Simulated assay, not measured.
Amino acid sequence: MLTPIRALAQRGDEGALLPRVKAFEPLYRLGCHPRRGDLIMIAGRSGSQKSGLALYWTAAMGLPTLYLSADMQRVTASARLAAMGSGDTFEEVSKAIQSGDMPSRYAEKLAGLPMTFSFDSPITWDGLDAELDAFVELHNEYPSVIVVDNLMDIAEAESDYAAQMAAMASITELGRATGAAVFVLHHASDKTWSKVDPWLPPSRSEIKGGLSEKPTITLTVALHPDDLTYRVAVVKNRSGPCDPSGQTYALLWADPARTRFYDHSPLNR
């Protein structure tokens, strides 16, 4: 059981709508309106830019964020965020970092983000407790947003269903206790690709382990590799409409090289 909450009362802004992000207007039009205190799951198949979406979303909101990632290296996270802010590609930023001649504009973009990262692998509850204590010590408040990337990187939850269910229960309590919006990333089955349209977002039933019971909102995502259209389906929504089949979706466009998303084709931006 998580117990990082011992010193502070719950946040007074729990339940407030999260800041709107322009690129996600099509998603808001589907009735998806995440709030602080919500548990939001983002699920997708391999290569569907789940981490990219979470990085972009949290950075664009500009809220104090604790991002836990077990499979992304420090330099990768820094390069993706610098690419997002500067408009240069991930490869261009990575080469600059490796050369030791990183432009000051990259550092400026990173310094302006209120994000704290933990790259411990696997993610452990003791480690999360320590990260929260350190965040409170530094900022005198809990983060407004917590990202767990991803569920199967939590210790003992790699393949054990009971451990994954216990992890989801603890993550739910984490959001309630801190008042933070908690994003948890998870996998959908790669064995159920649609032969008619393989780039449809997975249905709720395709989420591995059937672990969509706990979240307030569950989103499934799919990236088309050719035109970079990005489909986001609301397959669960406790306070609004949803389509468990995943066939009703918001249409976005992704720019993976810059970890950016748009509500229109990048060709027209």
Rank of each mutant, 00 (worst) to 15 (best):
M152L: 11
S245F: 03
P198Y: 11
E158I: 00
A162S: 15
D263L: 01
D126F: 10
V235D: 03
V75F: 09
N268G: 03
K22Q: 13
I171K: 07
E137T: 02
F24V: 00
H139D: 09
I207G: 01
M84S: 07
P266S: 06
Q10R: 12
G240W: 13
E108I: 09
D133Y: 11
Q247C: 03
T216P: 00
V75Q: 11
I171E: 09
G37Y: 12
A169T: 14
A169E: 15
L53I: 06
S118T: 13
S121G: 03
E137G: 01
A188V: 05
T3W: 15
A166R: 15
P202S: 06
E141R: 09
E156I: 09
Y230A: 01
I154S: 04
M72I: 10
A70C: 02
S51D: 05
L63Q: 13
L8V: 00
T259Y: 01
E91L: 07
W57T: 08
Y249R: 02
G52R: 03
A163S: 15
I123Q: 10
M168I: 11
Y142A: 05
G85W: 05
S48M: 07
A60S: 15
P198A: 01
E131W: 08
R258K: 14
Q164D: 12
R74P: 00
A163R: 12
I154N: 01
G62N: 07
E131G: 00
S212N: 11
L53A: 10
L68D: 04
F24N: 02
R80Q: 03
S51M: 07
L17H: 13
P202F: 04
R11V: 08
L151D: 07
L113D: 14
P266W: 11
V232K: 02
H186P: 02
Q164W: 11
A54D: 04
T58H: 11
M84Q: 15
E173Q: 09
S118R: 14
G209N: 07
L17V: 10
A96F: 06
V93N: 12
Y161H: 13
H186L: 07
R6L: 09
S194G: 14
G37H: 09
L30Y: 11
G240K: 08
M84P: 00
K22H: 15
G127A: 07
S86Y: 02
D101M: 06
L200N: 05
L113H: 12
L2E: 12
V234A: 04
R238K: 14
A250C: 13
I171N: 08
H187S: 03
E131F: 05
L151Y: 05
A60I: 11
L185M: 01
A222L: 01
L68N: 12
D255I: 02
V196P: 00
D197Y: 08
S144F: 07
R176H: 15
A70D: 00
F24W: 09
A250F: 01
L223E: 05
G240F: 02
L55M: 13
T259Q: 03
E206Q: 14
L185W: 08
